[in-house]
């Protein structure tokens, strides 16, 4: 039997959030955390969380498991538990809770929108594709794979303090994805939008983002690249 403790809060019923304990029979299997939640949902239909692909590519089920952010669908119990006997599940930290494990991602998406996450190219499009060498394309690896699950940004203290002004690791990873794309022509404009004391420079290299990214991406490195681009543009 596994003890699972889950953060519960229904704004229509509860005055304040509380932790609710459940006992789950895993039959000795190393289930994914999402499987456990599905078992509990069948028992307690009031428990809510987001989920979709259940294979770690859609980014719906980001949550905090035993203190670490991750995707419930690709986090096996053994990994979430470590040496602990009890599974503790909380919503992603730093964002307002709507209900149970569901947070309001509005602030996170707003930061993403701010960096103009779309290709800008003023030259007329050719009849076929725009050419790009495999080397130029290789620059996008480790960037375009981001699934917007918010595990990184909500693990970042700088984002906790300034979610309205600091773009956060996820948004900055995407900012660099477009800055470095050989097909994008708006590099200068993009950089000047980022050159304030908050958007990029609130990153203090804490690297929580790198530690939690379920896709193994490295936002801190991308932020470093952006900073270098900003500096070389302005000195």
């Amino acid at each position: 039997m596994l003890t699972v403790s889950i953060y519960r809060y229904n704004p229509e019923i509860d005055k304040e959030p509380y932790m609710k304990d459940y006992e789950v029979d895993t039959q000795g299997k190393d289930l994914m955390v999402l499987d456990v939640l599905e078992m509990l949902k069948a028992r307690d239909s009031g428990l809510v969380y987001r989920r979709s692909c259940r294979e770690g590519v859609c980014g719906s089920d980001g949550m905090n498991m035993n203190g670490k952010n991750g995707l419930a669908c690709i986090t096996p119990l053994s990994e979430a538990l470590g040496k602990s006997k009890k599974l503790i599940i909380r919503p992603l930290p730093g964002l307002p809770v709507i209900r149970d494990l569901i947070v309001d991602m509005g602030m996170f998406y707003k930061q993403y929108e701010k960096i103009k996450p779309f290709l800008i190219n003023d030259t007329p499009a050719p009849a076929i594709e725009r050419l790009q060498s495999p080397e130029e394309r290789a620059h996008l690896d480790g960037l375009y794979e981001c699934i917007l699950c918010a595990c990184c940004s909500t693990a970042c203290p700088s984002f906790w303090w300034n979610p309205d002004r600091f773009i956060g690791p996820s948004g900055l990873l995407q900012a660099y994805r477009f800055l470095i794309d050989s097909r994008d022509t708006a590099t200068e404009e993009r950089l000047s939008d980022l050159d304030d004391p908050f958007s990029v420079f609130r990153c203090h290299g804490i690297q929580n983002c790198v530690q939690v990214c379920p896709k193994g991406l490295n936002p801190t490195k991308a932020i470093g690249h952006i900073r270098n681009m900003l500096i070389s543009q302005s000195v």
Binding site: F118, L119, R130, P134, D181
Partner: peptide, 20 residues
Amino acid sequence: AVFELEHMGLPFSRTDEGRI
């Protein structure tokens, strides 16, 4: 339709000639 996607920025893998 595929070229339009590329123009929108879809990061296709590339051949040595730079094509999709």
